[in-house]
Write a protein that binds this DNA or RNA. Sequence first.
DNA 1: AGTAGCACCTGATTGC
DNA 2: TGCAATCAGGTGCTAC
Length: 311
Amino acid sequence: MPELPEVETVRAGLDSLISGAAVVSVDVRRDSCVRLLPGGPAQFSGLLDGARIEAVVRRGKFLWMPLTHPGAHSADAPAGEALSAHLGMSGQFRVHEGADAPEPHAHCRARLLLDRAGTPLTLDFLDQRTFGYLHVEELVETADARAGGVGSSLAALPGSVAHIGRDALDPDLDAAASVRAWRRGSRGVKQVLLDQTLVSGIGNIYADEALWAARVHPERAAHALTAPQARTLLEASRVVMTRALAQGGTSFDALYVNVNGESGYFSRSLEAYGRGGEPCARCGRPLRRASISGRATHWCATCQRRYAPRR
DNA sequence: AGTAGCACCTGATTGC
DNA sequence: TGCAATCAGGTGCTAC
């Protein structure tokens, strides 16, 4: 469920609250949330105990927190280690300051007790549908990060993120190369926008919003996009996700909230997603809704033409 | 190599 | 009322 603006809202909230905190104890309440570790919850706890969270960083929808281990040598992992996380369709982080944390929610999959300069913190990972995960893994240098140069904060990525492209709001994204990659291949434009290995961060909501704003039909073949159309599409995705971020993200219900349990307001600003049958804000014709490769898709058949008009 | 299809889950809502 | 079908913001693996 969460896409780039929602994940960034979570990242910023976590960063301000838990950066610099040390892990005091770990309670995994559903083993599958650490399924990427062969050793399960015991290994997860062992890797985190005593570690210090240096920061909370993000690429696209992937989050990670570089760790340091006070008093330990770092010869094993030259680039360091990180607690990484993906929210899947329904993941949330919730932070409580002080010693009086409430009972864990029914969807709480793991609870970490932290200490930040003497202040106790409780970090809960909630996930109704359990597609999300927590993981501890080594950071690896990537060719992309080295080539990026300027993006020194992303010099190293967790192994599970190494195949993900820079996200649409990354200042180091190579727009020309991204547009070229988008225009290759036989898939429809919507599928290409959702391909996280090309440009990351765009999910089902913002794909529909960007396509509507750029007046591109979701089923237009990617190779039939002109270069200017593809550029417009990239710019539209940036604009819509930047506006959403400024409003705390998109939320329809309590399934997506920030680290304090609050909802964002961008659902009021959506032009296409969830508006099947309602009039298009540009032309007044009813918006279409259909399933495209298994994802609900919304568009205006008048403003967004599947085939380029004949001259 | 690139792409389609499905699997992975829980819970709310809709329809018979 | 009860129960089955459908749907939900994502990703990764497998098989063509």
